[in-house]
Simulated assay, not measured.
Amino acid sequence: MDPFVTLTAPAVPLDIANIDTDQLLPARFLKKPRSAGYGNFLLHDERKPGFPLNDPAYAGARVLVTDRNFGCGSSREGAVYTLVDGGFRCVVAPSFGDIFAANAAKNGLLTITLPEETVAELRRQLQETPGAAVTVDLPAQTLTGPDGQPRPFAIDPFKKECLIEGLDDVALTLRYQDAIDAFDRADEEARPWLMPGT
């Protein structure tokens, strides 16, 4: 996955609480391969007239600033795929579904938890100035809104390291390739009767 260090990009406000994973990616699209472009299905059934993601002013947004309990519901990883494939690298909310947040980190999507009033103020600023950018500095753990004020956020150190270095589960495992190979060689010598073809 692509490393996440700093990002300055337009942000889109979404004043909806409790957006669940079925809203993010409706179940009927799960039968499609990801190569079909999961970004095309992002919040598919919510996109009524006036919906912020339909507004050209927010075109190219890479940060979503939303309301509490984002990503609740089922554990479908496709909900994260649809955001990533839709161009998003960061979601800001007062709270997240636990499984969604874990899946997000493993796919290069940063979730930032800030107090409800702080997030509401960010959404207000973004509504007043559609297309305004925010800056996320992951090493410094700050998010700077359109008003220029940096807001600190907390993040698990391991999750932070993985995002900055662009490490998914496979890449993490490959860090130990030499140790894995050494174990395999030693095991083959110690128990040759278990090896295939013997």
Rank of each mutant, 00 (worst) to 15 (best):
F4M: 15
E117S: 10
P152W: 06
R124C: 04
Y38F: 11
Q127S: 00
G39L: 05
D181Q: 10
V136A: 03
P13S: 05
L174W: 07
F88S: 00
E77G: 15
A27E: 11
D178V: 13
A59F: 11
F88K: 03
Q125A: 01
D178E: 12
G60Y: 05
F158N: 13
A132E: 03
P49S: 09
A186L: 07
R175K: 11
F96L: 10
F70A: 04
G86M: 12
E77N: 15
G37W: 03
I180C: 06
D137Q: 00
V136I: 04
C72I: 14
Q125D: 07
R76L: 01
A190C: 12
G108S: 08
D137G: 04
W193L: 10
G166Q: 12
K48Q: 14
Q23G: 03
S35A: 07
D22N: 06
E128A: 11
D85N: 13
T173R: 05
T144N: 01
T144D: 12
F4C: 11
Q149M: 01
A120K: 03
G37A: 12
E128D: 00
A36Q: 10
I180A: 06
L194H: 07
I19A: 09
R185S: 06
G108N: 08
D168V: 12
S35R: 08
L122C: 08
G37P: 14
P150R: 07
G97I: 06
P157W: 09
I16Q: 15
D55S: 08
F153Y: 06
L172M: 01
F158C: 12
T118A: 06
Y58C: 05
T129M: 00
R123D: 02
L53M: 06
T113M: 10
P13W: 10
F183A: 14
A102Q: 08
P130K: 00
D20H: 01
P49Q: 03
T173V: 09
P13F: 09
P139T: 08
T82K: 01
R62L: 13
K159P: 02
D169W: 10
T82S: 15
A93P: 01
R47D: 11
R124V: 00
F153Q: 06
I112N: 00
Q125T: 10
D22I: 04
E188C: 02
R89N: 02
T129A: 15
T66Y: 10
D67H: 15
D45W: 05
N54Q: 13
D20I: 04
G97A: 12
P157Q: 03
A36F: 13
T198I: 06
Y81M: 12
G73L: 14
E188L: 15
A27H: 15
D147A: 07
L143T: 00
A93C: 12
L163P: 07
A133Y: 11
E165Q: 13
Y58M: 08
A186H: 13
I19M: 02
L24H: 13
I99H: 06
F100G: 09
P94C: 00
E116W: 04
A104D: 00
M1N: 13
F153E: 02
G73H: 14
Y176A: 07
D55R: 02
V80Y: 09
E188S: 14
Q149Y: 01
D85M: 13
